[in-house]
């Protein structure tokens, strides 16, 4: 009886001396709460049975810390609202356990550290350096910022800081309003430019049409006048030839013709009763 109990106890003791560390974890072995060993590599491990040794595990994967939005000032006193994120992981579990303890505490400590560094970095830059529509520019955060933060992280917190980036840059609400004002003014200027450009083009198209029309009419006028002139000239020549054949008779005939043409139903012809028209009648039987 005693022997079998002893066997079971020793089995349990042996079993509690074996533990595994996952590939996604790091661990610290403590002896009555005091760290005595750090386990960085996964696999099967040995330890003294509880309560002598305890194993505290931490996630060793890359963690995302989304820092709360913070208002910072650029060198030219422009307010910006920045949202920062940090990629970090536990690199020294023993120090992490002593200095931080839990990931939640890590987030608070990291946030404060990062915000102050970001504020300092952006405070050294002009707003116009951060924004440009010319295609390329310097990175928004200076290259020497990350090593500075990383050094503090690893020395004080047992954390490796892999990256610090701005997830978002915005403006405080009251500054947004002034941007909107400017955007509206700019748009209305562009709209006006389009409309007056349209009017200008329309006017020049119409003017060209009118000019072409005038040209066409003038050309036609000239041609018509030419046609008339040639016809009149030809007629005059023909008449002149006829005249030259017998001027006296020609004039006589033309005069008669003219008289016949000129006198119509409304005309009143007053003639001498003894003139050639009636002398045969009024002169009696002479």
């Amino acid at each position: 009886m005693n022997r079998s109990l002893l066997t079971i106890i020793s089995f349990l003791a042996a079993f509690s001396c074996i533990y595994t560390v996952d590939a996604r974890e790091v661990a610290v072995v403590t002896f009555f709460g005091k760290p005595v060993d750090t386990v960085m590599e996964p696999g099967l491990k040995l330890r003294a049975p509880w309560p002598l040794h305890e194993v505290v595990r931490f996630d060793k994967r890359t963690q995302l810390l989304a820092v709360d939005p913070a208002e910072v000032l650029t060198r030219d006193k422009k307010n910006l609202v920045v949202e920062t994120f940090v990629l970090w992981r536990v690199s020294d579990p023993e120090r992490f356990l002593e200095a931080v303890g839990t990931p939640e505490t890590a987030k608070i400590q990291l946030s404060d550290l990062v915000i102050s560094r970001i504020a300092a970095a952006l405070g050294g830059r002009e707003f116009s350096d951060l924004m440009t529509d010319k295609g390329t520019k310097e990175p928004m955060l200076p290259a020497d910022m990350l090593p500075g933060i990383a050094a503090i992280g690893s020395q004080r917190l047992g954390i490796e800081i892999l990256d610090v980036q701005l997830r978002h840059i915005g403006l405080p609400l009251q500054n947004e309003q002034s941007i909107y004002e400017r955007m509206r003014a700019e748009r209305s200027r562009i709209a006006k430019a389009y409309r007056s450009e349209g009017e200008e083009r329309a006017q020049s198209i119409r003017a060209e049409a009118d000019r072409k029309a005038a040209e066409i009419l003038a050309g036609a006028d000239k041609e018509a006048m030419g046609i008339r002139a040639r016809a009149d000239g030809a007629a005059a020549k023909i008449y002149a030839n006829a005249y030259n054949e017998d001027p006296d008779f020609y004039l006589f005939m033309r005069k008669l013709q003219t008289a016949e043409t000129l006198l119509d139903k409304e005309s009143v012809l007053v003639v001498d009763a003894d003139g050639p028209l009636f002398d045969a009648l009024t002169g009696g039987m002479k």
Partner: peptide
């Protein structure tokens, strides 16, 4: 002359005066 006088005379109002 006579043809013309007839053509005109038949159409217009002719007044003879002395």
């Amino acid at each position: 002359w006579i043809e013309t006088a007839q053509a005109v005379g038949s159409r217009v109002d002719v007044h003879a005066i002395r």
